[in-house]
Design a protein around this nucleic acid. Sequence first.
DNA 1: GTGGTCTAGACCACT
DNA 2: GTGGTCTAGACCACA
Lengths: 133, 133, 133, 133
Amino acid sequence: MKFHLREDRPIYQQLVTTIADAIVRGELRPGDRLPSQREVAAEAKVNPNTVQRAFMELERMGWSETRRGEGTFVKVTEEQITRLKEQAAQEAWQQFCGKLTAAGFSNPAIKEWVHSQLGEKGGGGHDSAGQHS
Amino acid sequence: MKFHLREDRPIYQQLVTTIADAIVRGELRPGDRLPSQREVAAEAKVNPNTVQRAFMELERMGWSETRRGEGTFVKVTEEQITRLKEQAAQEAWQQFCGKLTAAGFSNPAIKEWVHSQLGEKGGGGHDSAGQHS
Amino acid sequence: MKFHLREDRPIYQQLVTTIADAIVRGELRPGDRLPSQREVAAEAKVNPNTVQRAFMELERMGWSETRRGEGTFVKVTEEQITRLKEQAAQEAWQQFCGKLTAAGFSNPAIKEWVHSQLGEKGGGGHDSAGQHS
Amino acid sequence: MKFHLREDRPIYQQLVTTIADAIVRGELRPGDRLPSQREVAAEAKVNPNTVQRAFMELERMGWSETRRGEGTFVKVTEEQITRLKEQAAQEAWQQFCGKLTAAGFSNPAIKEWVHSQLGEKGGGGHDSAGQHS
DNA sequence: GTGGTCTAGACCACT
DNA sequence: GTGGTCTAGACCACA
């Protein structure tokens, strides 16, 4: 049996994901200015160079634009956002199925279980469907 | 916008769920001996006392039995395992719905999206359904 | 022959019974706030963590409720108090019989001795019946 | 509410009581040699001077006799032992009544409770009547 | 202030 | 070796 608590993805990737999630959630909109690298570094308690790398990655993916002396700005089209959302949904679904499979659910069993959930709740969630921290 | 990389649930609780997951996965069977507190502490790179607390919690929940000088042993009935699995499924479903809600999906939208997944794949997973971080 | 002066029950358990006794005595009533962990630690001259553990144990037994930032509060029903009292009486009786047995009294001898006490005093105690260590 | 864990009687008195108890229990018989003061001090983890004082007290009460170069010996008559036992019983009874009184039992209630115990058990104790840690 | 968590390191009891 | 207890001191979250 293996015990590992630490997240093993590189920190800079985690930062990228954090920002991508904020975009998906609509917390960051096209044109918004990201906090400065120094601010992010201080808040996330990581090295500024790590943040720098995350921002480079963002720019490489075409989600942000760095304007010297001004800061870094979100630069995504609505169409990209839509694609990101679909991508996030896919990923979440993967995780969900993965967990159930690990718990011994067969694919038909998962299907059935989900149907029971959808039926019971009449939708896809319930009151506390927003909990995900 | 908030940046936090660290998992904020207490370490001892993370250990508990790690072990609970192993039980759900069938990796840990009733009667199995858990690694010693010191081993877990070394592997997870945490203080032995933190592991001790996790083990106390396990015992409190009636999932394990610790025998002084011998070790800690899994003590769950099949019925409890079944309950744990259902619980894990519920939790995974919550997370899934949470993420989609955060991404802007309404409950009906989630329902529809899931239906499309179930229809497409004819089950609930696919080749890479085993991915679960 | 063995000499040991220290009380060998764990300190945190002693704290638990100290508080349980106070509840039994009616010194602590449902809803009452216990002294803060730091206060107890200072007064009992033990480490705050030890007190914390005692309080955790109390909560686990359902005798208290701790509210973050506020304190720890007694949470027992009258019915639980009654049960505690009976339990305390049983325990005291056990100790009493244990001591007499150790002193060489047979069970019938204990019975007879107690009867003589009850007869003499017409009750079960006397003026100094409140002395208890 | 008061918290005190430490036994507040002087250590040398506790030692005296420990030895008296051993005599009452029959573990120490007239003529037996007590462990040396150094041994007692080491085992009880107290200062040898404290043990010295306890032994002086014993001798003052006429329960022991110190023979220079040989050691300390128990010197009690059977009649004294009988008296000690009665005394121990009285003390235990006091404590018992004290605890029940503190728990809210009136004297008649104690009498009644004890009667129920004697009746139930047909004696004054039961299988585990010897437990007194 | 409160309680909650974590660490580092100590000593003990059991086997 | 195992787990059980305790300490000293740190930092955090909540109110």
